[in-house]
Amino acid sequence: MSDWDRVVANSPDAPAVVVQRTVGSASQQATVAAVLDELEATAGQLFPAWLPGAEGITTSAGAAPVAVRRLAVAHAAATAQSGPFLADLAAAALTGSTAHTRRHPPEVRARGLARVIAASFDRPGCALVLRPPDHLDEAATLALAQAAQWLVDRGRLTVWIDSDSPYGIDSPPRATEPPRAAASPPARPRREPRGSARPTPSVVGKPHPASRAEVELEAALARRSWAAGRAWNHTVRPGPLVNPVRVDLLWKRERCVVEIDGDDHRTPAKFTEDRHRDVMLQLNGYAVLRFTNTQVLDDIDNVLVLLQQFLTNRRRTGKGL
């Protein structure tokens, strides 16, 4: 486990970490705008996790956009959010249109987006890891560094730049100062998309907010004493010579991995990747149990029975302990 993973995994106050690829640009303003557009797309995919009361609104038809705007204004009044921005963001997430969100100043967008992403994972803040293209020229490197510093100073984000640029970007932050933009943080494994062209972030210790199956399974497990010791979205290194992998659900002591598979896992490429991961884990003492989203959502009682039976047997025989 890297130092960066250790901070996120062990600290209850760790931020929600978003990894974002950037494009090279010679303009600080253009770089900031591109980063904010990507953060807004992420916030849209996380909706309605960050807006209490909007869980049942799943269509943009009729009065739904008006309803989410009212919910957003009421929620902003009880938090540190900007009401007009949050209302525009909620409507954009529901309708898919960003026509109104971009009318807000960049600093309002940056602070608002950081807050809603953090709220989606019940975390106190949001950290951004920027991964630029290889071989940026000096002008693009400078623009990226300036944009990152702007996001820190004006957007109040924690920002890291994961770059091998030969021009150098900044020095790591001192512990007595607010986080600053810095080059090359320890690498974090990224989560693959769940049936979507754009991945949404997952946070160590939490079910993925965009996965209804994970959220409902965690709600059921939270009421059962035998489920103690579980951890969501943790990184596992199957062996000393094997790359680490991110698993959906883990009982570390029992060396039990549970994967919740969406429809995308039926594709030949994904099926092959899953089997390779399973073999690597099994060769190093982990048991891998796989359930589909449909099994969890339509027959969760059976899933719970199977999990309880497996964990009870594992504990009784001492396997994996």
Results as ranks from 00 to 15, higher is better:
39 L>M: 13
40 E>T: 14
41 A>H: 10
41 A>T: 14
41 A>E: 06
41 A>D: 10
43 A>F: 10
43 A>D: 03
43 A>Q: 02
43 A>I: 05
43 A>T: 02
44 G>R: 15
46 L>C: 00
46 L>V: 02
47 F>S: 03
49 A>Q: 03
50 W>T: 05
50 W>M: 01
51 L>Y: 10
51 L>D: 04
53 G>D: 12
54 A>G: 03
54 A>F: 11
55 E>R: 09
55 E>W: 08
56 G>I: 04
56 G>N: 11
57 I>W: 01
59 T>G: 03
60 S>Q: 12
60 S>A: 15
62 G>Y: 11
62 G>I: 08
62 G>S: 13
62 G>P: 03
63 A>Y: 05
63 A>V: 11
63 A>G: 01
63 A>S: 13
63 A>E: 15
63 A>I: 10
64 A>Y: 02
64 A>L: 06
64 A>F: 03
65 P>A: 06
65 P>L: 11
65 P>D: 12
66 V>H: 02
67 A>Q: 12
68 V>G: 01
69 R>Y: 05
69 R>V: 00
69 R>G: 06
71 L>Y: 06
71 L>R: 07
73 V>Y: 01
73 V>I: 14
74 A>H: 14
74 A>Y: 09
75 H>M: 06
76 A>M: 11
78 A>H: 06
79 T>C: 03
80 A>T: 15
80 A>Y: 08
81 Q>R: 15
81 Q>N: 12
82 S>I: 13
82 S>L: 10
83 G>I: 13
85 F>Y: 15
85 F>I: 09
86 L>W: 08
86 L>H: 09
87 A>H: 05
88 D>P: 00
88 D>T: 09
88 D>F: 13
88 D>N: 10
89 L>C: 10
90 A>Q: 08
90 A>Y: 06
91 A>G: 05
91 A>S: 13
92 A>S: 15
92 A>C: 06
92 A>K: 07
94 L>C: 02
94 L>K: 02
94 L>E: 07
95 T>M: 09
95 T>L: 11
95 T>Y: 13
95 T>N: 05
95 T>W: 13
98 T>G: 07
99 A>F: 08
99 A>M: 08
100 H>M: 14
102 R>D: 12
102 R>L: 13
102 R>W: 12
102 R>G: 07
102 R>F: 10
103 R>F: 05
103 R>Y: 04
103 R>C: 02
104 H>P: 00
105 P>V: 04
105 P>H: 15
105 P>Y: 14
108 V>E: 08
108 V>C: 01
108 V>P: 00
109 R>W: 10
109 R>Q: 15
110 A>I: 07
111 R>L: 14
111 R>H: 02
111 R>V: 15
